[in-house]
């Protein structure tokens, strides 16, 4: 029973930075996929409620819009753009891998037991996704503050 409770790390297990070092960039992508997914869901719910304000007339709409048209609002939107692009890019990588692309050929598990699926193709995709995310955030900031 005690062993079971020790194994159940829950959210602490997710955010333990020591695990990134142990499992590499794939672990980082795994946790970022979940954080961006939750962030986007919260933003989406907020966005639906925010746009629902349009039914209360022009005054209510402008009042709500004024809250988002601030420096903080724009920085928040840039973060949303980043979350959206990373979640999309990494999601496409995961879908392709689940269809069998880029995960290598099955081989006998020999020491040091490196999984075929955690290869350079996957790592390159994650780094490329992070790069595209940064570019999209930069473009979004340029449009909003421009």
């Amino acid at each position: 029973m005690e062993k079971e409770s020790k194994d159940k790390e829950g959210i602490k297990g997710w955010i333990n930075p020591a695990k990134y070092g142990k499992f590499g960039i794939e672990r980082f992508a795994w946790i970022l996929m979940r954080i961006t997914g939750l962030g986007l869901l919260v933003y989406f719910i907020g966005h639906i409620i925010e746009t629902g304000n349009i039914l209360s007339g022009e005054g209510a709409w402008n009042e709500m819009l004024a809250m988002t048209q601030t420096t903080e609002g724009h920085v928040f939107l840039a973060l949303v753009i980043g979350m959206c692009v990373f979640h999309t890019g990494n999601g496409i990588r995961l879908m392709l891998q689940q269809m069998g692309y880029g995960i290598g050929k099955p081989a006998r598990p020999d020491y040091p037991y490196k999984p075929q699926s955690l290869n350079m193709k996957g790592k390159a995709c994650i780094y490329a996704t992070i790069g595209v995310t940064a570019l999209a955030m930069w473009y979004g900031i340029a449009v909003m503050f421009g």
């Binding site: 719910i45 639906i48 409620i49 746009t51 629902g52 349009i54 039914l55």
Partner: peptide, 11 residues
């Protein structure tokens, strides 16, 4: 959420 959003879109 779909009901709330649809209400906004339809109205």
């Amino acid at each position: 959420l779909v009901a709330y959003g649809s209400n906004t879109i339809i109205k």
